[in-house]
Computed example of a mutant assay.
Amino acid sequence: MNMKKSLFKKIEPWAITVVVIAIFIWAFSGIPLTGIKDTARQVFFSIMRGLFHPDWSYVYTGDGEDLVSALLETLAIAFLGTFISAIIAVPFAFLAARTNAKLFAPRSAFGKLLLTIIRVFPELVLAIMFTKAVGPGAYAGVLALGFHSVGMMGKLFSEAIENVDHGPNEAIAAAGGSGLDGLALATFPDVLPEFMNYTLYRFEISVRSASILGIVGAGGVGAPLIFALSTRSWSRVGIILIGIVVMVTVIDFISGQIRKRLV
Rank of each mutant, 00 (worst) to 15 (best):
M48T: 13
F24A: 10
L51F: 08
R232S: 12
R98I: 07
V150Y: 03
T82Q: 05
L241D: 05
I36H: 11
A101F: 12
I212E: 07
G214D: 06
F83N: 08
I244F: 04
L67R: 05
E204F: 04
H53V: 09
V90W: 03
T116W: 14
W14S: 10
A40P: 09
G219L: 01
I118A: 08
F104G: 04
K9P: 01
D55T: 11
T199I: 11
L75K: 04
M247Y: 02
N2M: 07
R41S: 12
S149R: 01
A40M: 11
A138D: 02
P54D: 13
A22G: 13
S85C: 05
E204I: 13
S230D: 15
L241Y: 00
W26C: 14
E73N: 09
S6Q: 15
P136W: 07
T231Y: 14
A175W: 03
A93L: 00
L185F: 14
G111T: 03
M152A: 15
N197Q: 11
Y139V: 15
I21Q: 10
S255L: 10
L200W: 07
A22I: 06
E162S: 06
E170S: 11
S209D: 12
V164H: 10
M48F: 15
D63W: 06
I205L: 01
P91L: 04
W26M: 13
M1G: 14
V120G: 02
H166I: 15
L225T: 04
S206V: 02
V207R: 07
S178I: 07
S233H: 14
V120Q: 11
W234M: 10
W56L: 15
M48I: 15
V250M: 10
L185E: 10
I16E: 08
L192G: 09
K260R: 15
N100Y: 04
A133Y: 02
I88L: 08
G179Q: 12
A89D: 01
G135C: 05
I242V: 04
D190M: 15
L67D: 08
V150D: 02
V207G: 08
N197E: 12
F130E: 02
A97W: 01
F227N: 05
L145M: 04
A210R: 04
T39K: 14
F253C: 10
Y139P: 08
P136Y: 09
L95V: 10
L213K: 03
Q42I: 14
A133I: 09
V59E: 12
S233M: 03
F94E: 06
M1W: 13
K132C: 06
T99Y: 08
R232W: 09
G256Q: 10
I25Y: 11
D55L: 00
L95M: 15
R107Y: 06
A218W: 04
A223Q: 12
Y201E: 02
R41A: 15
E73K: 14
A174N: 11
P193I: 03
T249L: 13
G219F: 05
G35I: 04
L51P: 11
F45D: 06
